[in-house]
Design a protein around this nucleic acid. Structure first.
Length: 137
DNA sequence: GCCAACGTTGGC
DNA sequence: GCCAACGTTGGC
C-alpha cells in the first residue's frame, strides 16, 4: 500500500465537487515527475486531497480505483490519468502552514517541491497527517 | 548538450 | 496581484 497526494485548485475542481460526483478521472497532468507518480499508483492506494491557492490545506482522503491509462483529454499517448473516488473528508483539514511548522514533515514533497501536482507521501508522513487531522488510528 | 529566456504554478 | 521557484523550450 502506497500513499499519495494530489492537488487541485478549488475553483477548478473542489473536494465538494469530487464528493458529489462520487468519482473522478485525474487527468490533465502534464508534468514528467507527476506522471511517474501517476503510473506508480496501484488500485486501493490512498491519496491525500489538497486544495491549492484557496484553502491551502489537505481536506480529504481519496482512493485509487483505476490504475494509469491513457489520458482521455489528449491524443498524446505519453500522458496518463487515473480514476479516484472520495473516501472521507478529514475531521480537521490540515493547512500547509501547520505542516511547515511540523519538523517531522519538513521533508514532505508538499513542502520541498511545492509545485509538483502529484506527490508521494511516506507512511510516517501519512500517519502524522492523520494525527494532525484528528483521525484516530 | 548547455543555458538563458520564458511560462506556469502556487504561496503569500 | 506580486513574485519566487521550477519546468520547459529553443538557440547556439
Amino acid at each position: 500500500m502506497a500513499y499519495w497526494l494530489v492537488k487541485s485548485e478549488p475553483s477548478v475542481y473542489s473536494w465538494e465537487q469530487f464528493t458529489s460526483e462520487k468519482q473522478t478521472i485525474w487527468s490533465g497532468v502534464r508534468n514528467y515527475a507527476a506522471r511517474i507518480n501517476l503510473r506508480a499508483m496501484k488500485k486501493g492506494d490512498e491519496v491525500l486531497y489538497y486544495h491549492s491557492n484557496e484553502g491551502v490545506e489537505i481536506v480529504g482522503i481519496a482512493k485509487v480505483i483505476k490504475e494509469a491509462y491513457q489520458d482521455p483529454t489528449t491524443e498524446d499517448d505519453r500522458w496518463v490519468a487515473v480514476d479516484l473516488k472520495p473516501v472521507r473528508k478529514l475531521k480537521k483539514s490540515v493547512p500547509l502552514e501547520i505542516i511547515k511548522k511540523e519538523k517531522q514533515l519538513a521533508n514532505m514533497d508538499l513542502v520541498r517541491l511545492g509545485r509538483l501536482s502529484v506527490q508521494t507521501v511516506k507512511e510516517e508522513e501519512w500517519k502524522m497527517i492523520m494525527q494532525m487531522a484528528g483521525e484516530g488510528k
